[in-house]
């Protein structure tokens, strides 16, 4: 029941999402692109349901972070986002580090308290980096930051399946100036509240 609803939502999300591709000149070997947009089709939806849609039960969830990562659940595709509610709790990192500093722990607690008070909501942690470091290195680093925050939330009692993660690497700086001050602001983990679809 729940799974069917989820699959519907996904199909909807995919249907609205992918816009038109460019149109073509002729001469070979130039690609011929369609004039009209093509949605993600066929096995796309199936595959989505088969991967993200499948409960990852047998990998289990280890709370003893350190020797294992904490497996991700299904995520919450299609849940409306609230970027304001936990804006004040953005966590900042040292250069090239994915360690949540002790000074930032009160923010983790605040987010955990919010989730306790709002039991139907979930949260997405977005990991970001400064411009130093190459693109895909930073994409991995941003994800490690998001995962580190997630692990801290789990430590203080949040159910791991309520925490999604995503990394934007260096693609979404809050400050585009090339300065240490800007870099400090950009090395961060943001919390986005996810509310159940109505």
């Amino acid at each position: 029941m729940k799974v069917i609803k989820f699959a519907n939502l996904l199909a909807f999300a995919i249907a609205i999402s992918l816009g038109p591709v460019g149109c073509a000149h002729k001469p070979p070997p130039v690609t011929k692109f369609d004039d009209q947009g093509r949605p993600i089709t066929g096995s796309g939806a199936d595959q989505t349901a088969g991967s993200a849609g499948k409960l990852d039960t047998d990998s289990g969830i280890s709370k003893s972070a350190g020797t294992e990562g904490i497996a991700m659940g299904n995520g919450h595709p299609g849940w409306p986002e609230d970027r304001e509610a936990l804006k004040a709790d953005t966590i900042h990192f040292e250069y090239d580090s994915a360690v949540v500093k002790p000074a930032e722990h009160s923010k983790v607690t605040a987010v955990a308290d919010y989730l306790k008070s709002n039991p139907s909501n979930a949260v997405k942690v977005e990991g970001h980096c400064d411009e130093r470091g190459t693109d895909e290195y930073n994409r991995s680093l941003g994800e490690r930051r998001a995962q580190a925050i997630r692990a801290e939330l789990v430590k203080v009692g949040v159910d791991a399946t309520r925490v999604d993660t995503v990394s934007f690497g260096r693609d979404r700086p809050v400050d585009t100036v090339h300065s240490d001050a800007a870099h400090r602001k950009n090395r961060r983990g943001e919390f986005v509240v996810l509310t159940p679809p109505k």
Binding site: R38, S43, G44, M72, G73, G75, A146
Partner: peptide, 15 residues
Amino acid sequence: GERKMFARYGGSNMS
């Protein structure tokens, strides 16, 4: 012009 979802696992799917 056809696109397919190749990897959409929990967390980030990268590189």
